[in-house]
């Protein structure tokens, strides 16, 4: 079964085998408001944990998505190109951004589990 982990920058990664699907959390989409553009990485691109891997633009502002883990991009959610509002509608599922093959699964230990992330969001008020 896939395990979901979270960053303090409000990204999630669902890991299954050696691959991880990445997106932004529901809290993040609520904070951003209406999303109008998503700039996705290219398939084959290497992303590094904690570094910018995608950009999401709401009506008000542009924000970066930082990769929750390192690896090679193996798929991107093309549906977001035409319909970026999917991120608002279903951030944790249909609003996924891209998928990587993990280069170092040990990196995941630095992330928060669902309970810890929930507690973290609540602490933000």
């Amino acid at each position: 079964m896939a395990k979901v982990s979270f960053t303090r920058e409000h990204e999630w990664i669902k890991v299954d085998g050696g691959e991880g699907v990445i997106g932004i959390t529901n809290y993040a989409q609520e904070q951003l408001g209406d999303i109008v553009f998503v700039d996705l990485p290219a398939v084959g691109q290497q992303v590094k944990q904690g570094e910018e891997a995608a950009v999401v633009e709401s009506v008000k502002a542009a924000s970066e998505l930082y990769a929750p883990a390192s690896g090679e991009v193996v798929a991107v959610n093309e549906a977001l190109v035409d319909d970026p509002a999917r991120v608002n509608e279903d951030a944790m599922n249909r609003g996924w951004f891209f998928k990587i093959s993990l280069s170092d699964p040990n990196e995941l230990s630095a992330l928060l589990d669902e309970a810890a992330y929930k507690e973290y969001v609540e602490s933000l008020g």
Binding site: V36, F37, D39, E57, A61, A62, V81, P84
Partner: peptide, 9 residues
Amino acid sequence: RFEGKAVPR
């Protein structure tokens, strides 16, 4: 008016 969806600000 810009092409595409990216927003120059």
